[in-house]
Amino acid sequence: MEKPALEIWKESPIFKALRNRSNLKGYCASCRYRETCGGCRARALAYTGDLFVSDLCVPLYS
């Protein structure tokens, strides 16, 4: 059964969790740009296995 992309975006638990910036951890959780940036969740997952940890490749990370 196919679903429209918008429906998947609205209903998927993982997409809901990704939109909730309070799930971010580490540097990204306290960054003043977290609402507009949030880091790259795909890169965080690839490097650490956790979608919500800090993205260490963000230029503002120090």
Rank of each mutant, 00 (worst) to 15 (best):
A29H: 13
S62M: 15
C40A: 03
G38T: 06
R43D: 02
K25S: 04
C40Q: 01
N23F: 06
F15D: 03
A46Y: 04
S54C: 06
A29R: 14
T36A: 13
S54E: 09
G38C: 01
E35W: 10
Y27S: 12
Y27D: 08
E2R: 06
E2T: 06
N20D: 12
A5S: 08
C40Y: 10
L6P: 03
T36I: 11
P59G: 14
A29K: 12
C40N: 10
M1P: 05
C28F: 01
L56S: 13
L18E: 05
P4Y: 01
L56V: 15
E11Q: 14
V58R: 14
Y27W: 13
C57G: 12
V53E: 09
P13T: 13
A5N: 04
R41T: 07
K10Q: 14
C28P: 04
R21P: 11
A5V: 15
D50H: 00
R34M: 10
K10F: 09
C28G: 07
L45W: 05
W9F: 13
A42V: 09
K3R: 09
G38P: 07
D50V: 00
C31D: 04
R21I: 13
Y47V: 03
C37P: 08
E11T: 14
L24A: 03
W9G: 02
K3S: 09
A17R: 14
A17S: 13
I14A: 05
C57A: 14
R21M: 09
E11I: 10
Y47F: 03
S54A: 13
G26T: 01
E7T: 14
Y33S: 05
L51D: 00
L56F: 15
D50Y: 00
G39E: 10
R19Q: 11
T36Y: 11
Y61L: 15
L56H: 11
P4G: 01
R43L: 09
Y27I: 12
L45K: 02
G38E: 04
F52L: 10
F52D: 04
Y27E: 12
S54N: 10
E35L: 13
P4R: 08
R19M: 06
E7F: 08
C40T: 07
E11D: 15
A46R: 01
R34Y: 13
S30F: 02
N23V: 06
D55C: 12
I8S: 01
P4S: 02
E11Y: 08
K3T: 12
S30W: 04
